[in-house]
Design a protein around this nucleic acid. Structure first.
Lengths: 212, 212
DNA sequence: AGTTTCAGATGACGATGTCACCTGAACGAC
DNA sequence: GTCGTTCAGGTGACATCGTCATCTGAAACT
């Protein structure tokens, strides 16, 4: 790891610093707190520098989500080839997702955000001149990779036949648990239960339902 | 319905117009599209008028969510005293929630938003002088009313014993289904299923699980 | 060495949330 | 009925934000 000299190395380092700074700000105060000025300042550059690496603010946030999806996909892949029992793998995969929602709620919201895929009114043209800066579909592909891994885990647990239906049921279930836990609508005294208990019940029910 | 003359009537009409305009803009383009200037313009007033009726933009959006929760609570109440079979009531209640997510996704997101309960850095003081303008806890109370009604429906369907646990499971399930349907992560070819099918499976499983 | 490329800096613009201040009409007391 | 009060709404202003056009200096290339 020599000193940064080449322009490519320097640019790559800046891009990484921008991503890290933006991710930190996202965790702290949500998308609203991710101002390009503050991101640039924390990365040691100025306001407009991010536009050399990302089409706009939205692309920067999407890139962060893409990296997290990659992590989750790798984690699921490792999990799949592990030695846990099938139900245990299911539980671990769902808990991994819920864990993101618990520890990084703002980032979690980005993971399941509507993909606007906005072409960019003017930023698009600007990027066409300066060349492409990032794959806007990267997040979708990474999310797809996680879903594929998860689908395999489900198939190993409940069989290939209904893996898709039950997989969707488990995924939506975990997503809802993460969402209501975060919004505070679950921790109230009204529902005397916990996210962990709900996940376990969900897995148990799916297991029972698939065996009959 | 005479002509508006009294100041109270005029103010109430303006408040209603502001809520309607904001709700429309919210449906069209999300919270970002709800600009106080445009809301004022559609309500026939100017920029700063909303501050006479709401502490800030966030309070306006919260008031919209509160009204929708009221509707949902009333709907659930009517449903509870209806003649549908218990499982049918469950299905209708969950579908009502999912329906909001399907037809008014931005509003739906507001329903389950983290309640910041921000006291308002300066707007709070301003409101203390001009008097309170709206109950910031109204949304929470209305949401609680819906949850109470739903909890009763669940208890009628699966028994009082595990109503809380299974109620939470159903609610989180529906919430997750609504969320993934909206984000597009469910409609993909990967998960060959539908929101309706998932809801039915969920209810069937809960019914089976509670009977054993 | 001279030319080109390009990451980053800078100035500027429009939009937005918010506040302080102002205005005119409805309201209450007499 | 008159007069002072209250208060819904209008207006100007400010800070902040995303974004774009333009500029600059150094690395990269010939």
């Amino acid at each position: 790891m020599g000193v940064m000299v080449t322009r490519a190395e320097s640019a790559a380092a800046t891009r990484r610093a921008l991503l890290d700074a933006a991710a930190e700000l996202l965790d702290l105060g949500g998308p609203e707190a991710v101002t390009l000025r503050e991101v640039g300042a924390r990365a040691g550059v100025t306001r407009g520098a991010p536009y050399r690496h990302f089409a706009d603010k939205d692309s920067l946030l999407t890139a962060i989500a893409a990296e997290r999806w990659e992590q989750l996909a790798d984690q699921a892949h490792t999990l799949r080839s592990g030695e846990l029992p099938p139900a245990g793998k299911l539980r671990a995969a769902l808990q991994a997702l819920i864990g993101v929602g618990r520890e990084q709620p703002h980032l979690y919201a980005m993971l399941f955000r509507w993909r606007d895929h906005r072409p960019g009114p003017l930023g698009r043209l600007h990027r066409e001149v300066c060349g492409p800066v990032g794959d806007p579909d990267a997040a979708d592909r990474a999310a797809g990779r996680f879903q594929d891994e998860f689908l395999r885990i489900v198939a190993d647990a409940v069989g290939e036949r209904d893996a898709q239906h039950y997989g969707a049921l488990l995924l939506t279930g975990a997503h809802g648990i993460a969402g209501l836990e975060h919004s505070g609508h679950l921790g109230a005294d009204k529902w005397r239960t916990s996210a962990d208990a709900l996940v376990d019940t969900l897995i148990r029910m799916v297991g029972a339902g698939s065996r009959q």
